[in-house]
Amino acid sequence: MERAIEIEQLFVSYLGNQVVKDITFSVNKGSLVGIIGPNGAGKSTLMKAALNLISKDKGNVKIFGEPLKRWKTNIAYVPQRSDIDWDFPITVIDVVLLGTYPKLGLFKRPSKNDRAWAFDCLKTVGMEQFSNRQIGELSGGQQQRVFLARALAQKAELFFLDEPFVGIDVASEETIINILRDLKREGKTILVVHHDLSKAESYFDHLLLLNKHMIHFGASEEVLQPEVITRAYANQFSFLQPKGVNVT
């Protein structure tokens, strides 16, 4: 199996504190991987550092055996909803059209074909009737679908999604996970930061469990064992100790 992503000894610190320590794992092409862990575990930080969006203290990232730089335009990134200014004067279709920019290069404007392609991607996520709305007029789930359409428009090989299922409706969640599964079937590699353990096993084939350190990386059913999960979440249950319950 071809290795799509290889991350070796990744360390990141924020304001002098180490928030991600010694993460090493590799993802095969065509995997749908969830990055899970408690709040503040460094899930988003890990994803951003892997994409070189924030500086890291140490670590090596390879995409298909090559430096990240050579694959930049082939990686679609969907940011957390809180990172976007929803009042920005931009329509839904123009947001999707942004996805065609990375491969256009300097000075080139999107062509009619690019526009038609963006509209197709909007159809895939079932949002074509909203194409001329301002992006902030949509609900959270609809916005997330539009951003997934933008990622599709990029015709990328790898997809990185940061908390795509936070605060969205059930129908949107289902649409999104189905599209991600389709992408996997097409041989794309997908990494998703996720916090809801209950659906982790049905959504992802592999899981990376972390709490600053890497706890475990492996097939979903292997990671979702009580003794493995407890290692990541143990200190969340410290409030039970006075009651005589010891979770370790």
Partner: peptide
């Protein structure tokens, strides 16, 4: 640079991710 100004203003993280 309209295209670049638009992306880097609306979604700087995406802009950075593709270089």
């Amino acid at each position: 640079f309209y295209k670049e100004l638009l992306v880097s203003t609306f979604d700087p993280t995406m802009a950075q991710s593709y270089g």
